[in-house]
Amino acid sequence: MNNLIDLWGYLRETPLFWLTLTLLTYQASAWVIKRLPDWPVLNPFLATTMILVAVLLITDTPYETYIAQAGMLQFLLGPATVALAIPMYRNVTKLKQMLVPLLVCLPIGSLIAISSVYALGHLTKLSQAMQLSLLPKSVTTPIAMGIAEQINGLPALAAVFVLLTGMVGTLIAAPLLDFFRVHDLRVRGFAVGLSLHGIGTARMLQISQEAGAFSGLAMALNGSLSAVLIPLIVYFLG
C-alpha cells in the first residue's frame, strides 16, 4: 500500500504523467463519442476538460502541477493560430466572393456580442467586475484578457468566461443553427468563429476545412475589432 502511494507521489510529479493523461483522455473521449449515436452536443474537448477537472479535484492535485506539465500543449496554440492562415489561403476564392457581406456583417456581429452581454448583465444584476469581465467573452483569450485589463475587469476571470463561452457555444451552436435553417457552411463557420473564437474554430475544422477557414477569419477580425470597440463602448456608457 505504501509502495502504491509512493508510486502515485512520483508519477504525478513527473512531467510525463498529466500530459499523457490529457492525451489518453482526449483519445478515449474521441473514440467513445465516435461510437455513440450521432449527437452533435458531445465533443472530445468538453468531455476531456470535464474529466480532467474531476480527476484534479478528486486527487486533490493543484492546477499548478497540472499546467506545469500539460502547458506544453498550450504552447502549441501559438503556432496553430498562425497555421490557420493555410485553410484560409486554400479557401481564398470563396472568402473573396463573400468579402463585402463578411465585412458588413463583422461590426454587426461584434456589436450583437457586446450589447447582449451588456443588457443581460444589467438585467441579472451581476457585480460590475463580473459584467466587465464578461464583455470580451466572444474574443480569443489573449485579446480578451488585454481588453479586460483595459476596462478594469479581471483578466483571469475574463479568460475563464472566454473558455466557458467556447464550451457552452460548442454545445448549442449546431442545434441552434439547424433550428434557424442556416445550412451554408461558410455562414455557419463565420458565425461560430465570431461568437466562439478559437474553440469554435477548432470545432469547425473538425467539420470542414471551408467552415474552419471562415471561422478563423471571423475570430481574427472580431478579436481585432473588439479590442477597439469594447473599451470605447465602456468609456461612453460608463
Binding site: L164, V168, L177, L194
Partner: peptide
C-alpha cells in the same frame, strides 16, 4: 454567482451565434 453567469453566458452566446448567422445569410 452561477445563475447570473449562466443566464448571461448561454443567452448572449445563443443570440450572437444566431444574430451573426442570420445577418450574414441576409446580406449574402
Amino acid at each position: 454567482h452561477w445563475l447570473g453567469i449562466a443566464i448571461v453566458l448561454i443567452l448572449s452566446t445563443a443570440i450572437t451565434i444566431v444574430g451573426t448567422a442570420l445577418t450574414l445569410q441576409f446580406l449574402q
